[in-house]
């Protein structure tokens, strides 16, 4: 199968996945017992207000019409309108907040892969030793580190006691660079605002380390196991026999050990997004996570549903991209 055909088949396979996810979100937000609006407002709200909210959310129509309208709109990129403050389209509101989450996740992802490569390589090189066990335990502990707790510990040490780094927000309020991509680090570089760049990076450090360390545990184990497997291959024995120095041995092994890692990244990405919600809340990071929680409090039902749909589509897209990268790197996948 050629690459083009592989991409086409994989794209077709996305259709049922997306339909399932959309239907699932619809059910989650509506058909479950109880009234979602009532649960969100609480029992004390006047009946009139509840009726009004139900009408705004389109919940007073028959379920099957709601479902068809919802599918139709989502497939046209329309996530509805927010129920508060000037009723902006939900997709615009999401796009205001999405770059912050993207910046955080990219940065945290980089941290987690780097730590994972380092700890995993150390463990594989000293296979069966105490260091190996120590790295294994590190992987477990990193995975159980509760994100808000770990974040707050970093805040109290590096923010409150040492005064090295800020503990909340995304950038100094007067230093925000002009918006091009919405990623502050990138925008500062593009516009040559070096003071903004320094500020953006300072704010990015603690949240990225928090999320990155917690996610690194999975990579530690994966890198280690892959490397150990690669080291046992015949071609590695050959390399060793012709007298390659350990450093270039590791480099060659890492290249092959990295391929199976890519398939993990898709699944790991979902965990990254979930972790981002907690990280954002801990660091008052103005991204999708804080946005979602804010709107749950304001009973902005359409926006809450739209945000969940957006997360679902985003995860499906990432999995699609990961599969294609994998197919490009490892041609065997295509058959």
């Amino acid at each position: 199968m050629g690459l083009g055909r592989f991409i086409a088949v994989r794209a077709l396979l996305m259709i049922p996945t997306i339909l399932i996810l959309l239907t699932f979100v619809f059910f989650v937000m509506r058909i479950i017992p109880g009234d979602p609006i009532l649960a969100m407002v609480g029992m004390k709200a006047p009946p009139q207000r509840i009726e009004e909210l139900r009408h705004m959310a389109g919940l007073d129509k028959p379920p099957y019409i709601q479902y068809i309208e919802y599918l139709w709109n989502v497939l046209h990129g329309d996530l509805g309108r927010s129920m508060i403050w000037g009723r902006r389209p939900v997709i615009n509101e999401i796009m205001d907040r999405f770059p912050a989450t993207l910046e955080l996740t990219i940065s945290a992802f980089t941290v987690s892969v780097l730590i994972g490569l380092l700890t995993g390589s150390i463990a594989a090189l000293r296979k069966g030793s105490k260091t190996d066990t120590a790295m294994r335990i590190y992987g477990l502990i990193a995975w159980t580190l509760f994100i808000p707790w770990f974040g707050m510990m970093l805040q109290i040490v590096f923010g409150v006691w040492l005064h090295w780094l800020p503990i909340a927000g995304r950038i100094d309020p007067d230093l925000a660079p002009p918006r091009i991509t919405g990623l502050y680090v990138l925008d500062s570089i593009l516009t040559g605002r070096w003071d903004s760049l320094v500020s953006a990076i300072r704010y990015l450090i603690l949240p990225s380390i928090t999320l990155g360390v917690v996610l690194s545990g999975a990579y530690t184990r994966l890198v280690r196991n892959n490397l150990v497997e690669v080291f046992g291959q015949d071609y590695m024995t050959t390399y060793r026999a012709i007298g390659l120095p350990p450093r270039s041995l590791l480099r060659k092994a890492l290249r092959n050990a990295f391929i199976p890692l890519i398939t993990m990244m898709g699944l790991q990405f979902a965990i990254l997004l979930a972790g981002a919600v907690l990280t954002e809340t801990t660091f008052s990071w103005p991204g999708m996570g804080t946005f979602l929680l804010e709107r749950i409090i304001y009973v902005d039902y359409t926006t809450v549903q739209g945000t969940i749909v957006f997360f679902a589509l985003f995860v499906a897209l990432i999995n699609f991209i990961v599969d294609i990268i994998y197919a490009i790197i490892d041609p065997r996948v295509r058959y």
């Binding site: 996810l21 979602p36 979930a274």
Partner: peptide, 24 residues
């Protein structure tokens, strides 16, 4: 299997938040 795989790929905590928010 396909349905379960789709849900499995969705970030767990965000799904739980969505459910918990409509349940109270």
């Amino acid at each position: 299997a396909m349905t379960m795989d789709s849900i499995y790929a969705f970030p767990g905590l965000i799904l739980a938040i969505a459910l918990a928010s409509v349940l109270g």
